[in-house]
Computed example of a mutant assay.
Amino acid sequence: MNLEQQVQALVDGAPDIESRMSVMAIAPILQQLAATLPQTTYYICQSPQGESVIITLRHHRQPNLEIKVIYAFTRTEDIGSFDNGSLATQLAVEVPVIQLLFYLLAIPEIDRIVFLNNSQNLDIGKEISRQSLEDSIAQKLKKEAPKNHLPPDVC
């Protein structure tokens, strides 16, 4: 599925007209971010119960600082090679990139998604944070909001 088809699937899967309108409003930002990634689908890990595996990272100097991350892989084989095989026992599920970016907005437990695009070096990835995605959406919506200025000839 290309990115436009992925957006359409997300719109079609919305439960009501208001949700569809919201998805259509943010779709250009999701597409713009997805276009910066080399894959249109990624593999993520899921538990046997079907929940996305969210990894909690803690800073060694500041143990109170936590970041909750989903790792997205280009190949299922990469999951077994990542982090000394710590995710190898999880189920690998292929997910369209637009849906993954939407997860970042829809699932409050996720702070970031790290896209691991280089199978040769899984220590380097492209990180997209919830905050940067929310900021991009807010900027877009602010630009498109109707101007509430009075015409210059109004007394």
Rank of each mutant, 00 (worst) to 15 (best):
Pro63Cys: 08
Leu65His: 15
Glu66Lys: 14
Glu66Met: 13
Glu66Cys: 06
Glu66Trp: 05
Lys68Pro: 05
Val69Lys: 08
Val69Asp: 07
Val69Tyr: 01
Tyr71Val: 01
Ala72Arg: 01
Ala72His: 07
Phe73His: 12
Thr74Gly: 14
Asp78Gly: 04
Asp78Ser: 14
Asp78Trp: 13
Ser81Val: 02
Phe82Arg: 07
Asp83Tyr: 07
Asp83Pro: 00
Asp83Gln: 15
Asn84Leu: 08
Gly85Ile: 06
Gly85His: 12
Ser86Gln: 14
Ala88Asp: 15
Ala88Val: 15
Thr89Pro: 00
Gln90Gly: 00
Leu91Pro: 00
Glu94Asn: 04
Val95Lys: 08
Val95Ile: 05
Val95Gly: 01
Val97Tyr: 00
Ile98Lys: 04
Ile98Cys: 09
Gln99Ile: 09
Phe102Arg: 11
Tyr103Pro: 03
Leu105Cys: 13
Ala106Cys: 12
Ile107Trp: 01
Glu109Cys: 02
Asp111Met: 08
Val114Tyr: 03
Leu116Met: 15
Leu116Pro: 02
Asn117Pro: 00
Asn118His: 11
Asn118Ile: 08
Ser119Gly: 15
Ser119Trp: 07
Ser119Glu: 09
Ser119Val: 02
Ser119Ala: 14
Leu122Cys: 11
Asp123Trp: 07
Ile124Met: 15
Ser132Gln: 09
Asp135Val: 03
Asp135Thr: 07
Ile137Asp: 06
Leu141Ser: 10
